[in-house]
Design a protein around this nucleic acid. Sequence first.
DNA 1: CTGCACCTTCCCACAATGGGAAGGTCAACA
DNA 2: TGTTGACCTTCCCATTGTGGGAAGGTGCAG
Lengths: 140, 140
Amino acid sequence: MNIGQASEQTGVSAKMIRYYESIGLLPSAARRANGYRDYGDQDVAVLQFVRRTRDLGFSLEEVSALLALWSDKKRSSREVKRLAETHIADLERRIREMRAVMKTLRQLAHHCHGDERSDCPILDDLAKPRTPSAKKTRRH
Amino acid sequence: MNIGQASEQTGVSAKMIRYYESIGLLPSAARRANGYRDYGDQDVAVLQFVRRTRDLGFSLEEVSALLALWSDKKRSSREVKRLAETHIADLERRIREMRAVMKTLRQLAHHCHGDERSDCPILDDLAKPRTPSAKKTRRH
DNA sequence: CTGCACCTTCCCACAATGGGAAGGTCAACA
DNA sequence: TGTTGACCTTCCCATTGTGGGAAGGTGCAG
């Protein structure tokens, strides 16, 4: 099957499939005589695995680790669970941070009348403090 | 004051101050005879404004809009409030998405015994479905 | 044969930030 | 005076994950 079909069946764009191969996340695809990449059911399964883990927010590096664990028959399930739980904890932390930010924004917005008058407590407040709590919400 | 002091007082790295200037987010800084950038209290106030809005998760584009509104004496507070509320709605949406993902991950992790045994329902499940709900959690 | 849809590789762009090189400047200290 | 070290300057590169698009080959249908 061509890359286009593989893309359609998995929801991973052809561009990304080639990219994943180029960075070594996926093994080099088989090639037909004309140079086209050729995908089989096994490849599609791997792509679906990648698609799914990406949808769940795992980084490509984490996906790579999960793929390795997936194909390693001797692996213990402990590692997998640990990876999932680390990810859950990360999500929880980010949600907490975002909630703190929302709280601040809601307070600011609440005091802004939001009409034609020009005085706006949001802007006045933004100019003053040096947010003490908010850490950089950096993705890993 | 030199860029180093301005950086220290505002928590914006010197690197970023120069970058913000280069992309036109900030006006060109005054220069001393030796070519060093020179910052005054007004510049520091602007940098603090930027720092604070960045901490609250606004993109540089949004910060730019807020800066314009800030310096526009005739603006209505409606626009500002709208910007803040759009941002709040965006945060809410992202939190909802992340919670859905966490729920899935928790279910997966719950069924994984996480010990030396190698069979792992997390990996088995990841290989199967085509997540229907999870949209890309892309930052704006 | 022509046209169109597909494939290939290669380069560029994005958002925001950090790292670091190569070189100029300034202040303090021996 | 000379040197040292802490600044400053610009310039380029890397990151993460994705899309856009050019330039060219392939394959099939009319």
